[in-house]
């Protein structure tokens, strides 16, 4: 039982990473893609929390506990908290970029992206016919 339970978070990590990755690869909408990125992010948090977990231990708050009581590792929790902040920044920035993209290009489909923008390739073709050819 304990073995299976300690394996569970690891399966969760792989699962979350896998569906996040699948979502990003197949995504047709940038907001959906941002959500998938958050799933990958969550898999790293789950991994960190699983690493710091101790069976039968209390939360690492010693307000009403005797010093020396077995507690879960507070370091990984601090890491997760720090990274939640970074993740929120990245998500906010992504959503702002997507909003601007919607305003300027009228589409938010990642599959429609081409280097130098969608217009760039067609423009190049035109120019080739016009000036060089």
């Amino acid at each position: 039982m304990g073995e299976a339970l300690s394996l569970l978070p690891w399966i969760g990590v792989v699962w979350l990473f896998g569906i996040g990755l699948y979502g990003i690869v197949t995504s047709r909408h940038f907001v959906h893609l941002t959500g998938c990125l958050a799933a990958i992010q969550s898999s790293s948090y789950l991994l960190l929390l699983a690493i710091g977990y101790r069976y039968g231990a209390v939360a690492p708050i010693f307000y009403d506990k005797k010093p020396g009581t077995q507690a879960v590792d507070p370091v990984v929790q601090a890491l997760v908290l720090t990274d939640v902040v970074i993740g929120a920044t990245v998500s906010a920035l992504l959503l702002a970029l997507i909003l601007q993209l919607h305003k300027h290009a009228g589409t938010v489909d990642p599959q429609a992206m081409r280097p130098m923008g969608r217009a760039g390739v067609a423009d190049g073709r035109q120019r080739r016919g016009g000036r060089v050819g």
Binding site: I98, Q100, L101, H104, M113, R114, G117, R118, A119, G120
Partner: peptide, 8 residues
């Protein structure tokens, strides 16, 4: 539009 694509 191209710079937003690149940034994303």
């Amino acid at each position: 539009s191209p710079s937003l694509d690149g940034a994303l």
